[in-house]
Amino acid sequence: MFDLSGKTALVTGASGGIGGAVARALHAQGATVAISGTRREALDGLAGELGERVHVLTANLSDKDSVEALVPAAEKAMGQLDVLVNNAGVTRDNLFMRMKDDEWDAVIRVNLEASFRLMRAAVKGMMRKRWGRIVSVTSVVGTTGNAGQGNYAASKAGLVGMSKSLAAEVASRNITVNCVAPGFIETAMTDVLNEKQKESILTTVPMGRLGTAAEIGTAVVYLASQEASYVTGQTLHVNGGMAMI
């Protein structure tokens, strides 16, 4: 089950905790992976760890031209692109009344607009092959909202609506488009929280612990697999029961 041998995948934001775990999980199932991110050192480290079937592609997702070049580069490196994982994301948290235009723009540009451009580019090759998987990593806050994250929540909810629309357009071509919505996951993003903050967060999580990046990777593997062929336009929530939607 969930064998990805012979499949190729592009994972954005692979220099981060969740993106790295997603790349590891896809690779472990046999996929060839192209890992992209902003931090070259982290990408090289991950590539060294994975050994074979890995390509490092650096990209700056806040730059339109850099985004447009990414899918063609992945197709060139791997011959084709079967699976696109939109994982890259940034936060610029601020209370609504204090939020600056550039904080709004930066988050929308990377989280939503870059994903749009990557999906538009990737779906072309997938249409030709009559097979494809697109998985976007969103967030529980895209559904529940979160104080101080108006921009981030908008970008993640936007990804969900965009994914559903594309899912409807390309379902007949055996291309599925889904989202994975993590709750609180142990990463550099949550490491900055102090014990007291963590404790208070955990009171909202029935599972009583933070999730691991590997648990997100597993969810992405499922949606990328042949076995998930009848699942499209969905969001798989991986949040320890924090929000049951």
Binding site: K124, M127, E169, V170, S172, R173
Partner: peptide, 11 residues
Amino acid sequence: ADSLDTVELVM
């Protein structure tokens, strides 16, 4: 053809 087919044809 459906609308998606026509896009594919143009491509």
